[in-house]
């Protein structure tokens, strides 16, 4: 119970900091929109090809933006040595992990209201309200799946010189199931689902999130303990 309360307090703290430094969120947002635009330039003005790849581009934009937001989420703590302060305080490291992971998930979730419409407009896909809701639900699952291992790895790489290279290097192969699962599921939402495969992909995304939210919570205390 105490762990949950601590985690929520930490989420509140991070969200407050996020709100005060809105430029960070806006930068990541712009970065994602620019990537969405670049994908369409790479494929060319062929609306059929763009529509077919829309789900893939949307998830790639999420993935690329996530590495920025994840490494940023620990940079602040690192600059002021605040992480060490937090570890020294009677804060459960498990609470620290879940606080950070929930914060990162919320951050990525907040990108959806901008990314999704931009992608739908740019790639000329038209959807009903129900399908858009499903899309947001899948987005939330993907964001959760990215955030758990992302938070663990960002906590480690943020202390290293080459963090900007290392985080994507570690995270991208790991989240291949999230990428495949969400792209397939979103493509089914966008293009119709004659074989009713959406459920299995959703279960896969959920399974990945559950496995890594538990495993990373278990491993996080080891990752941030002060060695020697």
């Amino acid at each position: 119970m105490n762990v949950i309360r601590q985690a929520l307090v930490l989420v509140g703290k991070d969200m407050l900091l996020e709100w005060r430094g809105r430029s960070r969120f806006i930068s990541v947002l712009l970065f994602g929109v620019v990537t969405l635009l670049l994908f369409s330039f790479a494929v060319g003005p062929d609306s059929v090809a763009l529509r077919a790849a829309a789900a893939g581009f949307l998830v790639l934009a999420l993935l690329l933006s996530s590495t920025l937001s994840l490494s940023e989420s620990f940079r602040l703590e690192q600059e002021e040595r605040a992480l060490e302060g937090l570890v020294l305080l009677p804060v459960d490291p498990v609470a620290l992990f879940y606080g950070k992971a929930i914060g990162n998930t919320l951050f990525l979730l907040l990108l959806a209201p901008i990314f999704t419409p931009v992608a739908l407009v740019l790639y000329s896909v038209e959807l009903g309200a129900m399908k858009i809701l499903t899309l947001v639900g899948l987005w939330a699952l993907a964001a959760a799946g990215l955030s758990a291992p992302g938070t663990l790895y960002a906590a480690m790489t943020s202390r290293l010189r080459s963090q900007d290279v290392l985080l994507p290097l570690l995270l991208f192969p790991l989240v291949v199931p999230v990428l495949m699962g969400s792209v397939k599921a979103m493509a089914l939402v966008l293009g119709g689902d004659p074989l009713e495969q959406l459920r299995s992909w959703t279960v896969l995304l959920g399974g990945f999130a559950v496995i890594y939210w538990s495993l990373c919570g278990l491993l996080f205390p080891y990752a941030i303990e002060e060695g020697g």
Partner: peptide, 26 residues
């Protein structure tokens, strides 16, 4: 790669172990 960037030996060992477990489960 992660391992090669960590200077402190204890931290290197812990992080390698953590990353190995996370990767293997995948």
């Amino acid at each position: 790669a992660l391992r090669s960037f960590v200077d402190d030996s204890d931290r290197r060992a812990t992080w390698t172990a953590v990353a190995t477990i996370v990767a293997f489960v995948d």
